[in-house]
Design a protein around this nucleic acid. Structure first.
Lengths: 243, 243
DNA sequence: CGCTAGGTTGACTTTAATCAAAAAACGTGG
DNA sequence: CCACGTTTTTTGATTAAAGTCAACCTAGCG
């Protein structure tokens, strides 16, 4: 681990966090909320390019993103890398580590980030006390399973342009849920990382961007993207519904 | 639901089930084991070709396979189907339904099957009482996430023959863990279903089988497969480690 | 101001998809 | 048990999509 990743011992209160509705269950009464704060032990800052955890690290905690943007990726023995997801504020990382007590992927910050460290023992203990939290944890894991099912559909059945359209729509939708624009975004990842996630080469990603741009569907300038015709993107992603 | 799928009200005891080590936590004392039996409400038989649950069905229960073989698959709006997994005895299905209370995929029996129906409310209630069961449920979900990460690597980074080699090795390994042969297996799914899972067309699957057969790595006769050179398969799947 | 990493574009190659036909296996009913 | 139609699988020929290789451009940074 990078020595600059100092684990702060400052206590953070979920009860006063504006991301609570994204990473914590809602509808708790004030006194229970107090106890729920115990699930988060510390915060931790991660610099751009540094890893939050790596393949083989022992698993102790889940991480909720407060600020910043991450990628998770797995590597094959011969060095091929597959990005398995991009995570933003309010999303939970580290679920991969539960099954074997070791992490099976790397989580790398794509910009300076801060995460809430939630020791999994705390999560489990409080889950037994609060059915609402228990249900929430189950939903988070189930959501990840369903998300990955969608990625399998993308990788197994879609062509390059459909994948990129789906990717952009998904990103902008998640950003919009966090109060950002519905039509503009700044990509935090390179063409190569997008390509890895979508199962295509960086040149193919670039060509698809250019094609969309030529067709007036989006405006692209490096990592800035503006979606001009969201319906056209949706049609590319899902031809049948929009034909 | 098919009316022939009669839900039996016969009580099944996990404590006496020979699949217990596959789908239930180990190390319980006899009196707790008794309570653990309560997690399974009923058994249900599913005929080959029938679905255990379908996209849109409301989620109430997880299912543990006692006998038989399933595929799970998702469909896009324009009718493209992606097989997201193949499940065999001792494996758990239905986790996709937790997040939204509705199933987001179909589970279809590829041979006559019998499953244990575990109402999720029971699972959650007993999980709060038994940390060991709680941990077990978390591990099952985490394992599914990690498995899907591996499939993403397969679909995103591997070529057709690598995918098929990985698929065969995975299948035979799981069968072997259940007491079957390390080298022989009978496929329960068609070439088309294998292709859907691996993101390739049925013709490509067939050609890859033929190629392995020509090279003397496997013997194929329709759905019967014998692995003659497991190391050659492993080398195809993972060139670096074996070069 | 030049260096470097990331991004774009073009020419060509490779891989797998598509289209098509035939063979093999399977199920059903006579 | 056999003949029939159906489904599944195999194989070949051709096409389409994306990968590879290479050159060049652009932006950001020391």
């Amino acid at each position: 681990m990078n020595p600059e990743n100092i684990t702060e011992t400052i206590k953070v209160a979920c009860s006063s966090c504006n991301l609570r509705e994204l990473c914590m269950p809602v509808g708790f009464n004030p006194e229970d909320m107090q106890k729920l704060d115990d699930v988060v032990a510390t915060r931790r800052r991660i610099k751009q390019g540094d890893s939050l955890f790596s393949y083989g690290d022992s698993f102790t905690s889940l991480f909720a993103i407060r600020t910043g943007f991450f990628k998770t990726c797995v590597s094959s023995a011969d060095g091929r890398e597959q990005v398995t997801g991009f995570q933003m504020a309010g999303e939970i990382m580290g679920l991969d580590g539960i099954v074997s007590d070791y992490h099976s992927c790397d989580a790398i910050a794509l910009e300076d980030a801060e995460v809430c460290v939630m020791p999994f023992a705390n999560v489990e203990e409080l889950s037994r006390e609060f059915p609402q939290l228990q249900r929430h944890v189950h939903k988070i894991m189930s959501r990840e399973i369903v998300r990955e099912n969608g990625v399998m559909m993308l990788l197994g059945n879609m062509r390059a342009e459909e994948r990129l359209a789906a990717f952009l729509l998904n990103l902008v939708q998640r950003l919009h849920a966090r109060g950002f624009s519905q039509s503009e975004l700044t990509l935090r990842m390179s063409r190569e990382e997008i390509g890895s996630y979508l199962g295509m080469k960086l040149e193919t990603v670039s060509r698809a961007f250019s094609k969309f741009s030529d067709e007036g569907i989006i405006e692209v300038k490096q990592r800035y993207v503006r979606i001009i015709e969201p319906d056209a993107l949706k049609k590319i992603f899902n031809p049948q519904t929009y034909s």
